[in-house]
Write a protein that binds this DNA or RNA. Sequence first.
DNA 1: GCTTGACCTTCCCACTATGGGAAGCCCCAC
DNA 2: GTGGGGCTTCCCATAGTGGGAAGGTCAAGC
Lengths: 160, 160
Amino acid sequence: MNIGQASAASGVSAKMLRYYEEIGLLPKAARTEAGYRVYSGTDVNTLRFIRRARDLGLSIERIKLLVGLWRDRERSSADVKRVAQGHVTELDAKILELTAMRDTLQELADACHGDHRPDCPILHDLEGGAQAKAPTAKMTKHVSARGRGGKSGAVPCHTA
Amino acid sequence: MNIGQASAASGVSAKMLRYYEEIGLLPKAARTEAGYRVYSGTDVNTLRFIRRARDLGLSIERIKLLVGLWRDRERSSADVKRVAQGHVTELDAKILELTAMRDTLQELADACHGDHRPDCPILHDLEGGAQAKAPTAKMTKHVSARGRGGKSGAVPCHTA
DNA sequence: GCTTGACCTTCCCACTATGGGAAGCCCCAC
DNA sequence: GTGGGGCTTCCCATAGTGGGAAGGTCAAGC
C-alpha cells in the first residue's frame, strides 16, 4: 500500500501521514526502491486509531502515550484512563472558559438595541467596562480568561 | 509614554503592541528621534479596549471591526451587535464541539475499570470503535467534529 | 565623563496541527 | 514513448503569543 491508499483507508491525509512520521508519532515507513513509502494493514489500523483519537480532540502528545499503551499488552487500564481523564479535565476547563465568554457577550448583545443609533452597551463595556463597573454587578463576572501568559495546559485547537 | 509604560498601563505586552501595529490593528506609533515608539493616553484607551475584547475571545479581525465602529460616531449599534453575535455563534459551535468530545470521552473513561488489568473500553473504542458499533447506540453519537478540512469559521485559539 | 543596567529596536524561532503549492522523479496504461 | 496521476521533498501560511539575540539609548550614580 502506498501513502495515497493508506490515507484513503484510514481517513488521515497523506500530508499528515508524513507529518506524523516526522514527529515520531508513527515509525518510519518502509520504502520502495524508488523511495515511495509502503504501508501495511497494521499501519492502517494504527492510523485509524490516531484519527479517532484526534476526533476526540486529544493532542498528539497524548495520542503518542495512548498508542504506546495500546501496543503494550502489559499496560494497566489505569494508565489509559489517566490519559483520557487528563484530556477531559482540559476540555472542561476550555468549555468553562468559552462559556464564560459566551455568556458575557450574549448579555451585552442582549442589552444592545441593535438599531441605527450609535449607543451600544457592548462598546461601552469594552471601553471602560470591568473596573469602573462594580456597582452594576452581574456584568462584572467577566472571568479573566485565557490564563494570560501561562503555559496552562489548554485544549489544542485543531478546529481551525 | 514609551512602549513599556503603555504596556503596563493597558495590560497588553510590548510584544503584542508591536505585533498589533504590524498587522494594522493599531496605527503606526509616533517615534522619538532615537526611534522609540511614543504612546498617548488615547492610545492606552484603545489598547485597553482591545485587551478586553481579546479577553472575550474575539479574533483580531473582529476587533478591527469593533475598533473601527467604536471610533465612528455615525455607527449604528446594529453593526456592533452583529459582530458580537457572530462571535457568540462561533463560541456556541466550539462549545458544542468540545462538549461532544468531552461527553464521549467521559463515558469511555467511566466504563474503564482503571486498574492493573489491560482491558480498556477506551482503547477498544479508539481501535475499532465507531463503525462496528451501531448496535450499542448511545456511544455512537461521536459527532464527526472538527469539520475536517473545512475553513469553517472556528473560534480562534488564544488560550494556548 | 564614563560605566552600568534597564529599556528600546529589529529580526528570527517556536508553538499546534493542518493545508497549499512548487519542482522534480516515478509508474502504469495506452 | 508519452501523458497523467501519484509520489517525493521543501517552503509557506494559518492565529496569536512568547522567547531570545544583537545592538542602540537613556538615565542615574560615581
